[in-house]
């Protein structure tokens, strides 16, 4: 009798201990998730696919899901991707994670997927179909965060130079709107100049070098990523005092920041979206399949690098690439809880 109680107790303890780790996984071990991707032609997308492969192959070997295959369309076209999604439905996937070629053009195919009982999670390039989940990037907040950081560092305020992205692209409008909102809210900065750097260091360097002679003293440079290093080069060449340049997580930007930090204690911050957001979408899909209650609209956390974790992030970023982070199941649950 006594041994029986003990054994029962032990079994209960073991079952309870196993619950948080595997209880949530048991239901999805037979599920298959597919990634439908529309484009793989730049370093961000390549990093995105590598992250997906790394995290999902681990999840598959751990038995969390049965399969997690990535599919990229041969051409970046809406009709190609719509056909691809319909093929994935036919292949019997339980969930499809989409980085979409168009926010609207895929809705018919997405609706077909939902009608067939497939869970659809879109990220980065999101779809607007009501039955799909969206993991969107709050670019506006990203621009605002830059100004708030500067307001923190520079209590007296001053003049700012804004470097914008590619004209006419929605991301550029959003980040810029966030920056101007932050400027209006803090009330101590003035944007005295604005140039288009096209998210490229060489373009940004030329543009900044061109506008600098006409500008008064500037205390900060707000950027969109991929343009901070070029701005630093142009300002250094002009012989001005180096303002606080907000960086965008690119390897060359982080390297320059590290050099300055070692040489004269230069302080700034860096912010962008990690390509590993594909893995966040994977875990969100897994959670939905698991039966978790997930709101339809989620927001991607930014990958922010500060003075104290610069070295660590720089070491993890490959030359020519962008700082990345792969998300875990816990991160996904945190994002879901944050949106409830």
């Amino acid at each position: 009798m006594r041994t029986f109680t003990k054994a029962a107790l032990l079994a209960t303890v073991a079952a309870v201990a196993a619950l948080p780790g595997q209880g949530a996984w048991a239901d999805t071990s037979g599920k298959r998730i597919a990634l439908s991707n529309n484009y793989a032609g730049n370093s961000w997308r390549q990093a995105m696919l590598r992250s997906w492969d790394k995290v999902t192959s681990q999840a598959v070997s751990d038995g969390v899901v049965a399969a997690a295959d990535a599919f990229t369309t041969a051409e970046n076209q809406v009709t190609e991707q719509a056909a691809q999604i319909q093929n994935l439905i036919l292949q019997g996937y339980d969930a499809i994670v989409i980085n979409a070629a168009s926010p609207e053009g895929l809705n018919g195919a997405v609706q077909e997927a939902c009608d067939a009982g497939v869970t659809v999670v879109s990220f980065d390039g999101i779809v607007t179909a009501e039955c799909a989940w969206r993991i969107a990037v709050d670019f506006k907040q990203m621009g605002k965060d830059e100004v708030l950081y500067l307001a923190d560092r520079l209590p007296e305020g001053g003049n700012l130079l804004e470097i914008r992205g590619l004209a006419g692209v929605f991301v550029d409008d959003e980040i810029s709107a966030g920056i101007h909102e932050g400027v209006a809210e803090t009330g101590k900065f003035e944007v005295v100049g604005s140039v288009h750097g096209n998210w490229a260091q060489d373009v940004a360097q030329k543009a900044v070098a061109g506008i600098l002679p006409s500008l008064p003293e500037i205390v900060g440079v707000v950027t969109q990523g991929g343009d901070g290093y070029g701005a630093a080069q142009a300002i250094a060449a002009s012989g001005r005092d180096m303002p606080i340049i907000v960086m965008g997580n690119r390897h060359d930007e982080l390297t320059w920041w590290k050099e300055q930090k070692d040489a004269n204690g230069y302080e700034t911050m860096s912010v962008s979206i990690a390509p590993g957001v594909s893995t966040l979408a994977f875990w969100v899909a897994q959670q939905i399949l698991d039966g978790a209650d997930v709101p339809k609209d989620l927001t991607v956390p930014f990958l922010r690098i500060d003075q104290d974790n610069l070295e660590e992030n720089l070491a993890n970023t490959e030359p020519g690439g962008v700082a990345n982070v792969e998300y875990s199941l816990g991160d996904a649950q945190g994002v879901i809880a944050g949106a409830m």
Binding site: E75, Q77, V78, T79, E80, A82, S102, E104, G105, L106, N107, G108, A109, Q111, T128, A129
Partner: peptide
Amino acid sequence: LVGLTTSADANIALRY
């Protein structure tokens, strides 16, 4: 095509 996709995009059919 629009009947299938439910909405349009200026680049929707360039492959055609």
